[in-house]
Each structure stands twice: as structure tokens, then as C-alpha cells.
Design a protein around this nucleic acid. Sequence first.
DNA 1: GTGAAAGCGCTAACAT
DNA 2: ATGTTAGCGCTTTCAC
Lengths: 340, 340
Amino acid sequence: MSETRVTMRDVAARAQVSLKTVSNVVNNYPYIKASTRSRVEEAIAELGFTVNVSARNLRRGRSGMIGLAVPELSLPYFAELADSVIRAAEARGLTVLIEQTGAVRERELAVLGGERRSFTDGLIYSPLALGPDDVGELSVVDYPLVLLGERIFGGPADHVTMSNVEAAYAATMHLVERGRRRIAVIGAHEGEAVGSAALRMQGYRRALDHAGIPFDPALVAEAGLWHRSTGAEAMARLLDDRVEIDAVFGLNDALALGALHVLHDRRVSVPGQIAVIGFDDIDETAYSSPTLSTVHPGREEIARTAVDLLLQRIEGPGKDQPFREVIADFSIVERQSTAG
Amino acid sequence: MSETRVTMRDVAARAQVSLKTVSNVVNNYPYIKASTRSRVEEAIAELGFTVNVSARNLRRGRSGMIGLAVPELSLPYFAELADSVIRAAEARGLTVLIEQTGAVRERELAVLGGERRSFTDGLIYSPLALGPDDVGELSVVDYPLVLLGERIFGGPADHVTMSNVEAAYAATMHLVERGRRRIAVIGAHEGEAVGSAALRMQGYRRALDHAGIPFDPALVAEAGLWHRSTGAEAMARLLDDRVEIDAVFGLNDALALGALHVLHDRRVSVPGQIAVIGFDDIDETAYSSPTLSTVHPGREEIARTAVDLLLQRIEGPGKDQPFREVIADFSIVERQSTAG
DNA sequence: GTGAAAGCGCTAACAT
DNA sequence: ATGTTAGCGCTTTCAC
């Protein structure tokens, strides 16, 4: 069934050339006589040769593969991010190896020292459970690393993030400008100083301040995990507590979609009685009922930038530069849930 | 910044043992004196040694890595499938390399002969654009391969699929049993003989036959791509054409969710006026408004089975067995969209 | 229980 | 424009 693998040596013998010439052809070395090249290509085709990438990697000391560590692919934001990273990497000739951490601190740390780091040229790392206390773990890292997200700032690595505070400010102002004053927020993490939750809350409060609306703690609903289910639960709690509300800001889309679901269930009209805005602009927001206004975080740009920074650390001119922090652009996408 | 890599040779020198002994320790070879082992482990820790996987792979002729080719991670079904496959593979000590084909025939074929096949021990392959005519391409494959889905039956590879016809029959009967007679179906692919669309349509028609309901072509809406947007368009077309409808069967959840969206927009009550059922049981169906009844296809089981079959082809007792076809169980999940 | 030697398939350096 | 040589880091016989 499985014949022994065809090697370059076989191709060389068949094409009556040296090993090196075959290698040159395979690697598109430019200076090869056309006749030689075609003879080699013929032999390759006839024998069905493909390079052994393990051998190539060993020799080159590089694998052309980068890791992407995300919490979970079943969270749409990360699935879409992975999609974008794979495309961006492909455009640069890199292959992406996805690792799921489950947003568990232990597993997030394990990824940093895992065996996979030895056959990956670098890592794009999107932690959800790590915090500033873990910066130490990052500084022992001796391979190219790009951080994504807002868990760790000023860490010993390149960092791509978005302007969370400004974006949350803009989202809140979007509601304020439409006459809303009792704006609930879903997804807060009490006592947390870093992370998307804290930053987005900051933007929310800043907008209220700016608009002269007093901050009311009763309007803040916690949600540890940012899933549809927790968003739904938080929304239900707010309604059950009979808090007066005319708008909801979900700190991510999943939360907002969960909230939307509960509002629909309870026959609360959106945006009539309560306007809703989310954050992330996942695909689904364009097809919910009603469609969800949200913050578009520039996912593609983030992915592209992360890959580029990593590539520069791997080989490029950025190899020894000080660590850089890139902040991606955002925009507000207005849909039905805040219309009118 | 980057010191030269620590190799087994360095560890051996430090621990005063031979290369082989270090290798034995790293690979958990059982017969090593405890004192030797701990000395080696100490040296490994002190030097921060990790095995070079490229070298190991080259030597072993295996990488411990399997490919998973899917259309797109941004399609929730495939994101969730990828999640499941990664978990199942991890449990067997395998790493998964995801490849996106974009559901483009050309790219689906390219994956089969791609360079990545040379550092992957096998492939789990979920084509969307291929058909029976492409079976030939599969038979030249000389590595372990497991097919997923319903594009290719009786092909030269192991195959994991679900009982599409029976599941679609059950979904349709679910509507019939709730008194629905004018059941529209969204997502048909005209003139296609294989694939999920054709099989699910078959189940639909069989259920109508069984219930003595005449088949009405006016109730069949095409949708080439199974996205929310195409589902929404198809639903809008049906409504605009004023076809009499009391239920909708979306051939997948995305289509059904798109339809749900349009119904909500047009103030059609679900399930009051029109009941809706989908297919796939993606996470989102539990949080739409209303929640969506659907077919649960046993995603976890499919993933686990696929990994197991592949592993058997790679190393196990199944290496030279005839090709197997495994059909996973399904179940109907009743939610609000068909309740009452 | 441990060591010595060979070589997996490829590419980089240095010829020619 | 092509060939020769050496060796990437590891595992695998086969000795001892």
C-alpha cells in the first residue's frame, strides 16, 4: 500500500542532476537553465515527489508555522479572528496552528512553554484569564510573541489592541445622542482593573460624565463569561429588578444578543422601549432580530498587524526594535437596535 | 538576545550521560535508574531544554499532527466542529492543523496535494464543493484520510456522516405532527443529486408523502450558500410571492436564522403563524428570538469518530481494513420556534 | 540500564 | 549554472 517515500535523491537520479539542483528547482532559485528545470520538474511529476517539510524545517531552523492561542473557537469573535489571522498569515506564506486555551489561566500559561513552541516560529497570543501579575511569565519567553487584547499592557512583547475606552465611549454616546438617559451596561467584572471589561466600563462612565448623566450602579449588570447565556441572565435580572432602563450597552455582541433575546421574550420593543448596542461586530449581529448596532473593532486590521509584527520579529527589520503597541481603528455600526 | 538552542547533546554533557539516555528520559522509556533519570531531568530544567520537534518528526517519519480541512471557520457549524475535533485529537495526543478552503472546488482539491500533507500524518476532510465526479482525485491520495459530510459516498476513504434523510424526515414530521401542512423548505440546490441539500430534500419529501401532503414546488426556495443572508433572501422571496405557508424548514440553522429574522421584521409571529425548524444545533439557536428548534447532529460524536478512524489508519489495527462508513446519531431539539 | 554509530531528507556554504 | 560536502537534532538498531 504505502511505498517508500520519494526523496530528492530519487528525483535527482531520475533527472540526472545533483541533489542541489533539485533543491534549487523546488525553491525557485532563479538561475537554472530552462532545460534543466523542466527535466527536474518532469521527474518530480513522474515520481510524485513532495518535499519533506520536517527535514526542511530541521535544516532551516524555521517551520513557517506560527501559533495562534485563543480561548475557544466556538466563540464567534475568536472564530472570526482565527479566520482573519489564517488569511493574513497565508498571504505572507505562513501556516497557522490554532491552540485553544479555554480561557483557563493554567492552560494559557501552559501554551507559553508548550512543546508546540518548538515547531512554531512565533506566537500570536490572546489571553483572557491572564493579568498584569503574569507579565513575569511573559518575560521568560524567548521566541517572537505578539499579544492581542487588553489583558496585559506594557508587557515584554509587541501588542495589538483596540481603543476600548474610546470605542465604549463612542458606543455610549451613540445611545445618549438618541435621547437615552437610563443606559444599562451588561458584562461588568467587579473589582477588575484591567481587561476589556474594565476599559469599556471606563469609556461608558466617561460618556455619562460628558453628557452630564449621573452614574447609577443599579444599571450595571455583571457577567463573568461573555456568552449569550450570561447576557440573557443579566438582562433578565435587570428586568426582574424593575430597574428603569431605556438602553442597554452589551460589552460584547454575545452579551447584547442574549439581552436582545430576553427583551423579545418579554415583549419589550427594541429600539422602541429599549435601544441595544453591542461590541465586536460579529457576523451574526447583521442577522439578529432586530439587527444589532455594534462597535466594529477592525478585526482584519488587527489580524494583519499581528502577523506583520510577528513576522518582523521572526526575520525582519523589527527583530531588535523595542516593543511596539499598535492600536487598531474602530467604528460604530448603526443597525435597527438603535435606529430612529 | 537569542542564545543558541539547547540540544540533547548539551543536556547529556551536563548530566554526564549519553545522548540516548536523555532521549530515553524524554520519551518516558521505563527502564532507567531513578538516580539517572532525576539527574537528567535536573539538567533539562537547568538548561531549559525542549525537544526539537522537527528533528523528532524527521527521524520518526511522523509528526503527530493531523490536518482538518473545512470551508470556513466563520461559519459557526465549522467553528464548532473544529473545536470538537481539536478536543478529540488532543485527547489522543494529536495536534490539529486547520486549513480553510473557502468552499472553493479548486482550493478543496489543492488541499489534497498541498505541501502540508507532508508534515501531517493524515487528513480529516470536509469538502463542500466537491462531488462524486471528484472521487478520482481522492483515490490517488496515499495518506490516511477521513471524509466528513455528504458530498461523497462510497469513496476510497473512511467516511463519517449523519443520517441526513432520516433527520430531515424527522424534522419535517416534527412540523407535520404540530398540524402544519404548508411547509416551505429553504436551501434547496436545484439539479444536485448529492450533498446535504439533496439528501435533506429527500427526507422532506418522504415525510410529506408519508403524511399524505402533496409536494408543492412553490414551497421550495433555493439558496446556494447556506448563510444567514441567503436564508433571509429566500424567506423574503416566499413572502413576497404570497405563497401560503404555515411552517419553514431551513436546511441548516444559518438559513433558518436568516428566515427568522425576516419573519420578525415583517411582524409574522413565530410559531403562531409560521413555525420554523433548522438543522445543525449551533450554539446560537438556543439564543435567537424565538429560540430555534433544530436537528442535533451529534457533532462531538462525529469529531471523535473521525479522529479515531484516522488514528487507526495511521497506526492502528484499522490500517488495512476496507473503508468504513460511520453514521452518527441525531436528535430533534424542540425550542420555541415550533412550540405549542 | 546505558552507550556508540548511523542516518532520517533536506539546505547552506563553498566549490567549480 | 550546477555539484560536493557537511550537518540540522533526534531516534534507532545493536552492542555491552
